[in-house]
Design a binder for these strands. Structure first.
Length: 345
RNA sequence: GCACAGGUGGGUGAGUGGUUAAAGCCAACAGACUGUAAAUCUGUCCCUCUCAGGAGGUACGGAGGUUCGAAUCCUCCCCUGUGCA
């Protein structure tokens, strides 16, 4: 009897809390609150927050917050490097395992049972694809090939997007049916997958051993294993969210987003990937004289709002999300979120 | 007060007698998304009904008029901008 009880307790997989939601919904605040309460470490899931030197426009957690709670996958990539969903997922999974194995260092006067508890990993971020790559895995496709892509892009340039789409149709009809001809990046990736992925036994029969994307998809994904996942979704009223976004964007400009962009531009030119992301893109347009003082802010706010809308669409079909109708920095919402975590700990 | 320019759907802005419920762009809303994803793309977008192919109603500052037919031409009125007084 006693033994059975012990066994079930032991076999209970460690928990990972995921905090998701659109920009400016207060994910960071909620994640921090959870981390403080349960002894957690935060794993970032925002693609551009991974880049170093991009500070103001990325709304990264502050130095004080980072000193207080361990943060992972923030400031871990060189501005001119490329990140990818696959690379993110590999690293994040590794980190999740490490956090869970780490013993909790008691703050204050820790109770003896508290000592035994391991750290709670909290994944927090708004990049839907990265989150999916982490939790559900990606199909076993090849990494990207820059030369092939350049060649295909040039093709599209001279012969039109339909031409590329027809190439894909020949290689992989189901994939072509799924991807719109105008969606050039996705068409290119699909062609790339079809052309560069080969079966190990390609030497014997190169034709038949090449797998197209649909076939690779059918091989399935490799979801995250060994964890119980609890997804907390932040979902404030749309108009409140938009107002918050406008405010935050204005604050970014007040805090020197343009100066930061100027510095980054001087240092890296347009080689640094995130220079073309939300806020930075608009700041850059201002520096180039394409936008005036007044329109930069408006344009940046607009871009953030549009982004939030896309995130909401993405997260709506995320499975098993416990939705919280408000902002993550709202104490009432935090309490509600904690109450959902409590029984799972 | 005079002169010129102009008033078009949530915004901007084409259209200058008929295939025009009115291009394009933007916003808004909805959707897609399997290694550049803070990216990229799609759909809807005056109202009502629909057997989902369509049917009807209302609309281009206002009121009249010309015409088989007007956002488009004419008259008067109202409003906005610019210039001159």
């Amino acid at each position: 009897m006693e033994r059975a009880l012990k066994l079930t307790k032991v076999s209970r997989e460690p928990l990972v809390v995921v905090v998701l939601g659109p920009t400016a919904s207060g994910k960071t605040a909620l994640a921090l609150a959870i981390a403080r309460r349960f002894g957690g470490e935060i794993v970032n899931c925002d693609s551009v927050a991974m880049y170093r030197e991009f500070e103001i426009g990325t709304a990264k957690p502050s130095a004080a917050e980072r000193a207080e709670v361990a943060h992972h996958l923030v400031d871990c990539v060189d501005p001119v490097a490329d990140v990818s969903a696959g690379e993110y997922a590999r690293q994040a999974r590794q980190i999740l395992c490490e956090i869970v194995l780490r013993e909790n260092v008691p703050r204050e006067t820790a109770l003896s049972e508290k000592k035994l508890r391991r750290h709670l990993p909290i994944v927090s971020g708004g990049t839907g694809l990265y989150l999916r790559a982490l939790l559900e895995g990606l199909f076993p496709g090849p990494q990207r090939s820059e030369q092939l892509r350049n060649k295909l892009r040039a093709r599209a340039e001279e012969r039109g997007t339909d031409h590329l789409h027809r190439i894909l149709r020949r290689l992989d009809t189901p994939a072509a049916n799924r991807i719109h001809a105008n969606d050039v990046p996705k068409v290119i990736r699909a062609i790339e997958v079809c052309l560069t992925s080969r079966h190990p036994s390609r030497r014997t029969s190169p034709r038949t051993s090449r797998l197209n994307m649909t076939e690779l998809w059918q091989q399935g994904r490799e979801p995250l294993q060994g964890f119980r996942i609890l997804r907390l979704g932040l979902n404030p009223e749309r108009k409140d969210l938009y107002a918050r976004i406008n405010q935050r964007a204005a604050k970014m400009f007040d805090s020197g987003l343009i100066v930061e962009t100027e510095r980054l531009l001087a240092k890296y030119g347009d080689q640094a990937r995130p220079i073309s992301s939300l806020g930075y893109k608009q700041a850059l347009q201002f520096l180039r004289g394409e936008l005036d003082r007044e329109s930069v802010l408006a344009a940046a706010q607009q871009a953030h709002r549009n982004y939030a809308k896309r995130q909401i669409t993405w997260f709506r079909c995320e499975p098993d999300v416990r939705w919280l109708a408000g902002f993550g920095d709202d104490p009432a919402i935090q309490t509600e979120g904690m109450a959902m975590i409590e029984p799972e700990i």
